[in-house]
């Protein structure tokens, strides 16, 4: 009984944490100035966010063998998200995008 309650609390905490990270990532995606900062916000926060939401869902309603799928999905998200961000940032760099700087005299 106690173990079940602890598991439930852990699951809800993970989901809430994940949603908070996703929210932060989304705000960063909208508010950050250039493609590099946006890719940074999207990849980091979404990997942690989606990963912990998936782990929270896996812990919800007890742990079963089928939850291994969710763990694999979380691993997939953690591997593929940063790779996508890397590819995006690399493509942006190769196509000549300069990172934006706060210095108004710097390159635009």
């Amino acid at each position: 009984m106690i173990a079940g309650a602890v598991l439930e609390i852990a699951a809800v905490a993970l989901v809430v944490l994940g949603v908070a990270f996703l929210l932060a990532g989304t705000i960063g995606l909208v508010r950050f100035p250039d493609v590099y900062a946006r890719a940074h916000a999207a990849s980091k926060c979404d990997s942690v966010g989606a990963g912990s939401v998936l782990l929270g869902v896996a812990l919800h309603d007890g742990v079963a063998f089928g939850d291994l799928k969710l763990v694999l999905l979380a691993l997939l998200v953690v591997v593929s998200g940063p790779t996508t961000a890397h590819a995006l940032a690399r493509a942006a760099l190769r196509s000549g995008r300069r990172p934006s700087t706060r210095d108004p005299a710097g390159p635009a």
């Binding site: 694999l72 997939l76 591997v79 593929s80 790779t83 890397h86 590819a87 690399r90 190769r94």
Partner: peptide
């Protein structure tokens, strides 16, 4: 052509069997 990024190369090769 631009060479493929080693990170992307590795990850695609890693994920393809899955």
């Amino acid at each position: 052509a631009v060479p493929v990024s080693p990170v992307v190369f590795f990850v695609v090769r890693l994920l393809a069997p899955f």
